[in-house]
Amino acid sequence: MIQAIDLTKRYEDGLLALDHLNINIQPGQIYCLLGANGAGKTTTINLFFNFIEPTSGKALLNGKDCTREPLEAKQYAAYVSENVMLYGNFTARQNLDFFTKLAGRKNLSKEDYYMVMRQVGLPERAFEQRVKTFSKGMRQKLGIAIAILKQAPALLLDEPTSGLDPKAGAEFVELLLRLRGEGKAILMSTHDIFRAKEIADVVGIMKEGVLIMEKTKEDLKYEDLEKLYLKYMEVS
């Protein structure tokens, strides 16, 4: 569902952010990308949405090339960024309404929106409040609600749990597991090794644009991910 083939990105200033990345994520699979700041995790996700163009290689969503057919490809994926920013002057529902319509879904009622917002754990009083009064956690939840409503088979999450309080983090993990149960392919970049170990079907570690390790849940059963991570960081 989410597939990168020799995906490479070199920025205009010469920085090689991504070097021949190959990943393939199946439906019902959660893939966690680990790595230090600047390892290329966000660049990877940006490439899938054509926010930036790859220098070479391909990013595919459901087999569609994200660079050549960005509009078709983007239908199959929803996006949650590290710091979800929404239109501050609009209420939660108005934001939801706008983005859902952009995603191509029409004829949703107010109740549908409320239901999803309840589902992601937003308090009732926030439904018709302006987003600029929201805390980061609430914005993040709203971002996930937008992603859910898009009903896309793939989810790309860019450090979605950073800055969330522990309770919100736990709720978020539950939500992700439920989405996996619905058969979605999920790519999530994160710094959080413990959470990655908890939920990931596959874990990848990136360093300076290169995917230097990829291990499945089964592989990790017998290994300490934290030690592995630190080891890979030291090497070379």
């Binding site: 949405f49 509009l71 078709e72 983007k74 979800v84 952009l102 937008i146």
Partner: peptide, 14 residues
Amino acid sequence: RDGTLTLVLANPVS
């Protein structure tokens, strides 16, 4: 700057 542009462009709009 606010990041809403990426959120918009994550959808199938040109």
